[in-house]
């Protein structure tokens, strides 16, 4: 009978004060030689008067001031600087002759060619070397007006030289 009762007694009946284990270490700690500081748990830190009354408003005003996400302006000083630099470079390049088309033979005036040949001292032999023999024999025909030829010979040609040739 006694044994049967015993099986039903699961609890010891002992109880401990609430938070006893939580405070046990502090109690022991306070008796280990530094009771003046360790019993009071005063860190020595203080707070300005009214701080806790004003902190909420400070947080709220910061929340209201700041947008939820950072908005990046497209027109920052840096961006404007870079864009201006690029635009200036393009304009400069367009004004430079590097984009000029290479002149074709057809666009050259006769005067330009004439001036070039005179300035560069190109001899008749050098010009002849650029032409093929067939071109010299068959293709080269002079369609010069007789009056113009006469006028040219009167102005430039040396009669004596012509007579020798």
């Amino acid at each position: 009978m006694k044994n049967k009762k015993l099986h039903h007694i699961k609890s010891t009946g002992f109880k401990i004060p609430e938070d006893y284990f939580e405070s046990l270490e502090s109690k022991v700690f306070s008796k280990t030689g530094q009771p003046s500081i360790l019993s009071g748990h005063d860190s020595g830190f203080t707070v300005p008067k009214q701080y806790f009354e004003t902190i909420e408003q400070a947080v709220i005003s910061r929340i209201e001031d700041k947008p939820a996400t950072k908005v990046r302006s497209l027109f920052t000083k840096k961006a404007v600087f870079y864009a201006s630099s690029i635009a200036a470079t393009i304009i400069l390049l367009l004004n430079l002759s590097i984009f000029d088309k290479t002149p074709t033979f057809d666009t050259l005036t006769t005067e330009t060619v004439e001036d070039y040949l005179i300035d560069e001292n190109v001899s008749s032999y050098e010009i002849a070397s650029l032409l093929l023999e067939e071109e010299l024999e068959t293709g080269m025909t002079l369609n010069v007006d007789d009056d113009a030829l006469e006028a040219y010979l009167l102005e430039h040609a040396d009669i004596e030289t012509l007579m020798i040739e």
Partner: peptide, 18 residues
């Protein structure tokens, strides 16, 4: 910096604890 902090009124022993 704590020893010069106006919001720290701890004694020498509290500073030592920190």
């Amino acid at each position: 910096n704590l020893s010069a902090d106006v919001y720290f009124e701890g004694k020498t022993i509290q500073l030592k604890l920190q």
